[in-house]
Design a protein around this nucleic acid. Structure first.
Lengths: 100, 100
DNA sequence: CGCTAAAACTTTGCCTTGCAAAGTATATCT
DNA sequence: AGATATACTTTGCAAGGCAAAGTTTTAGCG
């Protein structure tokens, strides 16, 4: 009936879901902006980012401007995986909404 | 920008999300049906059900028919919590969908 | 050059959680 | 009584999240 198996655990975890959603909205985010938006500790955020990076979903861009500054964005794979994930969410919403 | 804090951890976990979704679709499910549908082990399923029950989201009905048979359904609180959860999912979908 | 400060990590350690496998209890049918 | 199915409980392990503190890298300033 539902493809719960399709739910990617890498994406589904609360913290990383936040990251993925933000990266889907805006193509590039700095570490600082993500941190502010998601209210995560440095260690927590970087760990999630690395998990996503290791999974091939997030690209890292190291730049040195005013200050050292690292940016993060979705890879093609990451974007595709997220879209897949959204499909399941849509199934859930369709199922969960009260019917008339 | 997003209410990620609103994501109820009790519901968000993969296994329990499955249970909640099924209970939202059909008002009552037996242990066996849930087990079959979600392909979970007894121990795993019962633990999640108890977690949801302890959180006041799921009601348990013990009946003895042909065989002993326990059924599960959403409480009002559970239904409300699930609807709240769906709100966040909708935000995520709206955000995540590719724009034209 | 040397100090300070900020960014971006890494490391540590704790604690929760999920999960499967095996065992127990209750009830039915023969 | 014995077999079988349901509905649990217990055990034990392994993975993962998280914060706090420490480390490295880079820039700005005197």
């Amino acid at each position: 009936m539902f493809d719960f198996d399709k739910i990617d655990k890498t994406i589904h975890e609360k913290g990383r879901l936040g990251i993925m959603t933000l990266l889907a909205v805006r193509t590039s985010w700095t570490f600082q902006d993500l941190k502010t938006e998601l209210k995560m500790s440095d260690g927590n955020l970087i760990t999630h980012l690395r998990t996503l990076h290791d999974a091939g979903m997030v690209a890292v861009t190291r730049e040195i401007l005013d200050r050292p500054q690292t940016s993060y964005s979705l890879t093609a794979k990451g974007r595709a995986a997220f879209q897949e994930y959204l499909v399941v969410l849509e199934q859930i919403i369709t199922a969960g909404k009260p019917k008339p």
